[in-house]
Design a protein around this nucleic acid. Structure first.
Lengths: 213, 213
DNA sequence: TAGATTGTTAATCGATTAACAATC
DNA sequence: TAGATTGTTAATCGATTAACAATC
């Protein structure tokens, strides 16, 4: 019924968590769940869960709850996990290699179509079922395959120039592991930052400041 | 002057970004900066920056701005980056290896003191200046070295049992890369989650839903 | 002193929680 | 029908922005 327009990032960030959890439930054979039960297991309020879901539609049944299987499918659709958006990964260092081989892009809505690096020590290496290509081949690759998203695992010094190039080549969304804020220069671009150092620092802050109380 | 008690996570999460940026400024030889200049470069409001900083004290000078070098140091202290909190990493797969070798724990307030895995294929491998130990040695290691934090890079099936064990061994903070929510079971524990799949899914959502508008 | 910019209070905006009528 | 639980509106809470007095 609802189908609001501007969904807040707070809501969006909770969706994968719901999805993950519902899939687990489905695997354990649970067919039905109420917002209250979910709230207990997720450490949220039932109210919030119902609000969140109702941003996209009325998926539940009054007096009954939600059908796990159905809700799972709905959230998957909302997230667009069947999108198969073509993605490339640039930077095949430790982190890039780990991301490329550890992540299941397909399950998360993407198809990893190419891996690039500028170092001769990396070019030609096989990661999963892909071979690392020279960054000089980026232009031709993008022209032909038209990837939508680029995962950036390059050092900070390299990001600015690289993001300029990729923007030129038509890429408008980034999964950015580098310590550089792309969206300051390109506000029309979708950026999901994973700043591991920042993440670790906030942990440090909390340990540091928990001690004193 | 201010020194409030309950700093919100929103503020805490911005601190590393300020810190990063100020360090860059310092490197480029900038000595002085105003909240307005900072706001432009960071894409925030000047008001927010001043509010954030004033949670911890009055670091600026009216009519002048902030001394980059000094502010940088202050934020470093607030974050507790000199803490050198002893940390271990469990799970030396693709991701664990990348985290262990790619991250500079020392710069972010930690000292990586041990890496553990249960697989015979991993045990004995050298990562940086550490050697992967058998998880069976965890108990002895923790008793002796008393690490504060554990980075978890193990598969989901293994996390619950592992976090139980580590909790028993006195660890009260986690940098968690696994798809399992530790804080539901242990609310007294400090957890920083890095859920890469969730992160990728939110990117998928935004690409998917940007198209339609 | 005049100009600039902070620190801080007040106003606004948004997100979460509570309440309850609708309804399965 | 009675019980349960949703969908949705209203109340609360917190975070961001605006404004301005203090002061370097």
């Amino acid at each position: 019924m609802a189908k609001r327009e501007n969904i807040s990032m707070s809501v969006i960030r909770r969706l994968p968590r719901y999805y993950r959890f519902l899939r687990q439930l489905r695997e354990t054979g649970v067919t039905r769940i109420s917002s209250t039960e979910l709230s207990v297991k997720l450490g949220l309020t039932a109210s919030q869960i119902r609000q969140d879901l109702n941003c996209f539609g009325g998926f539940g049944q009054q007096g009954y709850g939600y059908i796990v299987d159905q809700l799972c499918l709905e959230i998957g659709n909302i997230l667009g996990l069947k999108g198969g958006y073509k993605a490339i990964l640039v930077g095949a260092g430790n982190l890039g290699q780990a991301i490329a081989s550890h992540m299941n892009f397909t399950e998360d809505g993407f198809e990893l179509a190419g891996i690039f690096d500028s170092s001769p020590f990396k070019i030609g290496n096989r990661i999963g079922n892909l071979e690392v290509s020279d960054t000089s081949e980026l232009e031709a690759f993008c022209a032909e395959q038209k990837p939508t998203m680029a995962a950036l695992c390059v050092p900070r010094e390299a990001v600015e120039k690289l993001s300029d190039q990729l923007y030129q080549l038509g890429i408008r969304s980034f999964w950015n592991f580098s310590h550089y804020d792309i969206s300051v220069k390109y506000p029309d671009v979708i950026v999901e930052n994973v700043h591991l150092n920042d993440s670790l620092m906030t942990l440090c802050y909390r340990i540091h400041n928990a001690k004193e109380s």
